[in-house]
Nucleic acid binder design. Structure first.
Lengths: 340, 340
DNA sequence: TCATTTTTTGCACAGGTGTGCAATGATGCT
DNA sequence: AGCATCATTGCACACCTGTGCAAAAAATGA
């Protein structure tokens, strides 16, 4: 199991010997805020460079009981929405000299494993983007000063910092957009994933429709994907009573839905069919779609998380989740006149 | 700087005390292949569970001089291609119980930082997907038994394991596809990025055209993105002598190119214009595009990398880079009859 | 120059783990 | 039973770093 390498990593002791100072001096040179004279510092740096010394972050973390690692747990990270989020997060975290560990979780059990990993590596924090973490493990994390931040999930436990997006407001707004556009047969295209944010959007949309005397229907035929959106359209437009307005709970669903409506059933958008999405992924702005949607401010959220973790912001516990607004992005998939 | 937490992480010593065994027994219980009797093992596990013990991977890594961390360096990780690759990699690495560290690098300097990070965290390996790593740092990595694997990059140094895709073969094939489809005015749509794989495709494509007496032109108007593809199309179709066949060196470029050609210039695909892409991202199969393209076998590459790092495969050094074939995916953006 | 304050430096310890070595206990064989 | 073999266990050391403490050096003031 042990490696067989000729040379080994160079340690602070070796640097100290070469520079003719104590090992403490070396340590202090590379520790922010420690007291070293400019003379010794330069001697140390010179020796370190010539030897190729790099601080062993493992040993440092062992002392400090934290490792500057932040663990991101997410599923389907190849998805436009998730990958944009992770991109923003990694950049912001790097800006405060944190290191990003990504755990690709499909099921809840892997979220469990991820949290265990967080503990084993003494990470500073865990960001949960998907799945439901295990309560006992969360408690262990929190007890040891590790932070747990969940995004667009149900808040499960005190001590967990929660960030959500204004799903309900947006969903209600979506109904009114379709309503104002003159749609009569309205459908909500969702998935079987049952994610908290999906459920929130479904409920708010259907409720708002009902409150205005319109019976909107809900369709869930598969997971949250392009294919599901496509298949949903196929079922709806080949049945009796096809819709003339659709709120797709995800842009990805919307893309599949639009493609099939247009190419397989000849629907013109927005003349025959109005479509609204959610997320504002890159593809929504592509001119094949031009999708009117709601933008999730992932960059703002990433900045907020950075500020949280650089302790420039106090953890906002107790007073409920931090809410970020989703603003509508008007494009061409809804008839004009719907815009207020 | 020091944290103020009531409790602290539970150590192996505490578990040992509770279980009534020595700390060594605890260590051996959680070390694969160590010798412990079933009796003590179960006592230890019981105690560990009740205390919430988790091995400190930092201390373990300090001893072993490796941390089971694999560092992935990549730019533009929100891109469909990159995110799919990272998704595959993280899954395969997790399968062999490695932990993924993602470094989001925009410039070469950040690749440098990433490599330094690899060293500081005593990572097992670094995967470089973008940018040019620093020679001296690579040497330090290699000297200490850390592996460096570059994908679709120029091989820079011995000891670095290199994986590439058959860019040239595919590019030549792309020309013939357009040629057989009867295109006369052929253009290669690339970007200013100047990535090794882009350059390889450009050169091979243009050379093959020249060898067959056709003067294909090369267009590079921006970075590798949808917008660049769109802008390229705008320039080409508003100028004199618009093309009737395009090899877009990236599917993302192709999407932008197709959208503008169709929606702003009324070109029918494939009747008026044949388009070929590269990568086979998800969007290429969406029915708005139906793009004929070349598939990069990212899953196969990820599996290969897993096998390399689980030392089931010998590092293939010396005899040049490992090549993975890119196979054409026939869809509808090239006139039929081009298919052999 | 000398006394006083401030900065710098080295020592030694702590942090949690893996493992070689020797001792102990268990098991098998005759 | 007696001996040999083998698995198990505990001790002590090593891995590399940060930091409190006291001593030394430097800077400051008169």
């Amino acid at each position: 199991m042990k490696k067989k390498t000729g040379t080994s990593f160079v340690s602070a002791q070796q640097v100290a010997d070469l520079a003719g100072v104590s090992r403490s001096a070396v340590s202090r040179t590379f520790t922010k805020g420690a007291s070293v004279s400019p003379t010794t510092r330069s001697k140390v740096i010179k020796a370190a460079d010539s030897l190729g010394y790099h601080v062993n972050e493992l040993a440092r973390g062992l002392i400090n009981e934290q490792s500057n690692i932040v663990c991101i747990v997410g599923a389907d990270i190849y998805t436009p929405y998730q990958s944009r989020f992770i991109d923003a997060l990694t950049r912001e975290l790097q800006a405060i000299h944190k290191v990003t560990m990504v755990v690709n979780s499909s099921g809840d059990s892997e979220v469990r494993d991820a949290l265990a990993q967080t503990i084993r590596y003494r990470a500073d924090a865990t960001l949960v983007l998907s799945g439901q973490p295990d309560d006992a493990l969360i408690q262990t994390c929190l007890n040891n000063g590790q932070r747990v931040i969940v995004v667009n999930r149900d808040k499960m436990q005190s001590g967990v910092e929660s960030i959500v997006v204004t799903n309900r407001v947006a969903a209600r707004e979506a109904f009114h957009m379709l309503h104002r556009a003159g749609c009569h047969n309205i459908v909500a295209v969702s998935s079987k994933a049952g994610t908290p944010s999906l459920v929130a959007r479904e409920q708010a949309f259907l409720q708002e429709a009902k409150d205005h005397g319109i019976e909107a229907t809900l369709k869930t035929v598969g997971m949250t994907s392009y294919e599901t959106g496509a298949e949903t359209a196929r079922q709806l437009f080949s049945g009796s009573n096809p819709p003339d307005g659709a709120f797709c709970l995800t842009d990805l669903l919307a893309c599949g839905f639009m493609d099939v409506a247009r190419h397989e059933f000849g629907r013109r958008i927005p003349e025959d069919l109005c479509v609204i999405g959610f997320d504002d992924i890159d593809q929504s702005s592509w001119s094949s779609y031009n999708l009117t949607t709601f933008r999730q401010p992932v960059e703002d959220i990433a900045v907020h998380i950075r500020d949280l973790l650089s302790s420039r912001l106090d953890p906002d516990l107790g007073e409920g989740p931090t809410r970020f607004p989703t603003e509508p992005v008007w494009r061409q998939s809804v008839r004009m006149g719907a815009k207020p």
